[in-house]
Every structure is written in C-alpha cells, then in structure tokens.
C-alpha cells in the first residue's frame, strides 16, 4: 500500500480529534479525575456561600456524630467546630497551597532544567550539583526542617514545599532540552540568528510542555499531601483550617470518635486521587508510544 493510500484511509474525524485534549478526554481515568477535581474546586469556591462565618468558631456541642444534628451534617469535633464547614474551607487552603507551591517549583525546576540543558558545560555542571544537593535530602524532611525553623504559616509552608519539590522536574526538563538542543530545529534557529532566550522560551519550552504538565498535576497532589503531613505533625498554620490539621487533631480521639479524623482524611484522598488520575490520563494522552492502542 502506498503512503498516500494509508493517509487516505484514516477517517477525517479521527484526524480532527487527534490532539492532546481529545486524547485526554478519551481516558476514563482522566475523566474521573477531572470530575473529582471539579468537585473539590467547587467546594473551595462555594465554601463562603454554603458555610458563611469562621470555620474555626465553636458553633455547637462538641462530639456530635454525623447526622446527629441536621445543622451539622458531618458532625462537630472536640471543640464543637462544624466538620463540614472545616472540610469546605480546608479545600481552599489545600488547593491554594498545592497551586502556589507547584507554581514556585515549576519556575525553579523549569528554569534550572532549561538553562542546564541548553547551555551545558560549566553552567550545567554547577546547576546539576545544586539539584543533586537538594535531591540528597528527602523533600519531606527538608520541608519539615524549613517550616520548623521559620515557624509554620501559610507562606512558610508554601515556600518550604516550593523550594524542595523542584529537583526531579529540573532533571526532567534538562533531559528534554538535551534531546532537542542538538537537533536540526535548534541548529536552524541558531543559523537564523535567534537569541538564546528566544530559542529556549519560544521553541524548546513548548516542545517539553507535555511532560511538565503531567508532572505538575502530580506535584500539586504531592504538595497537598505534604501540607497535610506537616499539619498532622503539628506544623500546620494554626490560624487556618486545613485537612491535615483536622486529621491531626482528630487522631487522638480516633478510637472513640473516628469520624473527626476520617472525614477530612477522605477529602485528602479524593483531592489527591483526582490529581493523580488526571496526571495518569494526561500522561497516557501525551505519550506517543501509547497513541494507537
């Protein structure tokens, strides 16, 4: 069969849908992920409408089980705080921390990876030693240390997660850049007199975007988990309600009042699962080896 015939046999509809968006939409896990994430985002956006007022206020009798009092559908905790309100408002903090910390990691990780991969040589060597320095310390312990020293607040937690989560991303971006750096496209651009910055940001970066997006979605999930773990260990910001903080507080009454720790725990599971499913779906969609299954 001639090449022309093969092309002719591909149905036109298939060509139209053959972009990352539609390929993602065809992944069932991605669809579930998007739906769950949409639900969590909706919780965050509607928190003030559905549960006006301070979620940290002592509004009811302590230790009310879910459904015991219709005004507190998910019950109250040991100080009489509304658990449902805490979970809704906690979604804001978790998403905020996840998004901002990931943005920070992206800037550092992509920056380091891009310059190291593009320039090579001494710049590459020094940037990679820096990356390795960060990689030798387990990111969670590193974040824990930073927060413990600087004292827990939203800003320090975001900062700690942001500056510890980027090394793997930097290596990923560097590898992609190395692959493309000596390819024909870059050589042609150099020949045409394009500046380094133009080559990096206009041409190389868009070509490495797919793996970055995939890892970013997982990084958001990891950031949420890290914040929860920090709060669970008592290093959350005590002035805001967070899922990890709720689990940590409820843990000491786990045997007698399981729901206080379990319900915010479920919220963490849903958010992290959503982001991981989305990441998986995106990964499958952008991986050329899986394109025609």
């Amino acid at each position: 069969m001639a090449l022309v015939d093969i092309v002719a046999h591909i149905p036109p509809a298939r060509i139209a849908q053959d972009n990352a968006f539609f390929r993602t939409a065809r992944q069932p896990s991605a669809v579930v992920g998007v739906l769950l994430l949409g639900f969590v985002v909706a919780m965050a956006l509607l928190a003030n409408q559905i549960f006006p007022g301070d979620p940290l206020d002592f509004v009811g009798q302590p230790f009310q089980r879910p459904g015991e009092d219709p005004s507190f559908p998910l019950g109250t905790d040991m100080l009489g705080r509304d658990l449902a309100s805490g979970i809704f408002h906690g979604a804001r903090i978790s998403l905020l921390i996840g998004a901002v910390a990931t943005a920070m990691s992206l800037v550092i990780g992509v920056g380091v990876g891009a310059f190291a991969g593009y320039y090579g040589g001494k710049i590459d060597a020094s940037l990679m030693r820096l990356t390795e320095f960060f990689q030798t310390i387990p990111p969670f312990l590193f974040a824990l240390t930073i927060v413990a020293i600087l004292q827990p607040s939203i800003a320090t937690i975001v900062g700690a997660i942001g500056v510890t989560a980027w090394p793997s991303l930097a290596r990923l971006v560097r590898a992609e850049f190395l692959k493309l750096r000596h390819g024909d496209m870059v050589q042609a651009e150099i020949a045409l007199g394009a500046s380094d910055m133009r080559i990096i940001f206009r041409h190389l970066l868009p070509n490495t975007l797919a793996p970055i997006i995939v890892s970013a979605s997982v990084m958001v999930a990891t950031a949420i988990l890290t914040e929860s773990s920090l709060a669970f260990l008592g290093l959350g910001d005590p002035n805001v309600v967070s899922w990890g903080g709720m689990v940590g507080a409820g843990r000491e009454v786990l045997r007698s009042d399981w729901y206080i720790a379990t319900l915010p725990g479920v919220a963490i599971v849903v958010a992290v699962l959503a982001l991981n499913l989305l990441g998986d779906g995106l990964n499958d969609a952008v991986d050329p080896k899986q394109e025609r299954r």
């Binding site: 100080l79 008592g234 005590p238 507080a249």
Partner: peptide, 16 residues
C-alpha cells in the same frame, strides 16, 4: 506551650 494537643486547643479557644 508545645506539650501536646491540650495546649494547642487552649490557644484555639483563646483565639475564638
């Protein structure tokens, strides 16, 4: 005083 949840809850009570 960071001696446990009892003291943390005392702080949360004070705040509210």
């Amino acid at each position: 005083l960071p001696y446990g949840d009892d003291y943390k809850r005392t702080g949360e009570y004070l705040k509210q």
